[in-house]
């Protein structure tokens, strides 16, 4: 697998969430995702970026274009140094929230992407990595 263009964006405020959505959209169009897949990855990015701001206290997202054989993909890595998640399994469940949301963010985002990976250490932060492939 080849990692092509990569860029990092700060995710610290609500305005940054909008910036992330627009950057992810532009990159999704660039790698040739169809409209439904573009919408899915942008929506997942919106949920994860909001989590980074609200629960992680801000962080970053790395956007990477991938080439794997004939298929192309977009990988997003959200990272924060927030309080971390104690019970990831619980956090992934629909309807579970420690905050003000609907509790659909993590589980919902996972359903919208091809690959989903989360690592979190209490007290150190959280990393969520998602990939959407075009085929």
């Amino acid at each position: 697998m080849v990692v092509g263009k990569a860029s990092e964006i700060r995710v610290a405020s609500q305005d940054d969430v909008v910036v992330v959505r627009q950057a992810v959209r532009a990159r999704a169009v660039e790698i040739g995702l169809n409209l439904v897949d573009q919408t899915k990855i942008v929506t997942a990015a919106s949920e994860l970026a909001r989590n980074t701001v609200v629960y992680g206290g801000g962080g970053t997202v790395l956007l990477e274009s991938l080439l794997d054989g004939g298929r192309r993909g977009l990988r997003l890595t959200f990272e924060d140094r927030g309080p971390g998640i104690t019970d990831i399994e619980k956090a992934m469940q629909d309807g579970y929230t420690t905050g003000v949301g609907l509790g659909l963010g993590l589980g919902g985002a996972r359903r919208l992407v091809s690959e989903f990976h989360i690592t979190s250490r209490p007290g150190e932060g959280t990393q969520v990595r998602v990939t959407k492939w075009n085929g």
């Binding site: 439904v36 573009q38 919408t39 929506t43 949920e47 629909d94 609907l102 919902g108 359903r111 919208l112």
Partner: peptide
């Protein structure tokens, strides 16, 4: 609502 938005919303769980 755009069709792609409707599809995504349902998969999101909303």
């Amino acid at each position: 609502m755009q069709p792609s938005v409707a599809i995504t919303l349902v998969e999101l769980g909303l």
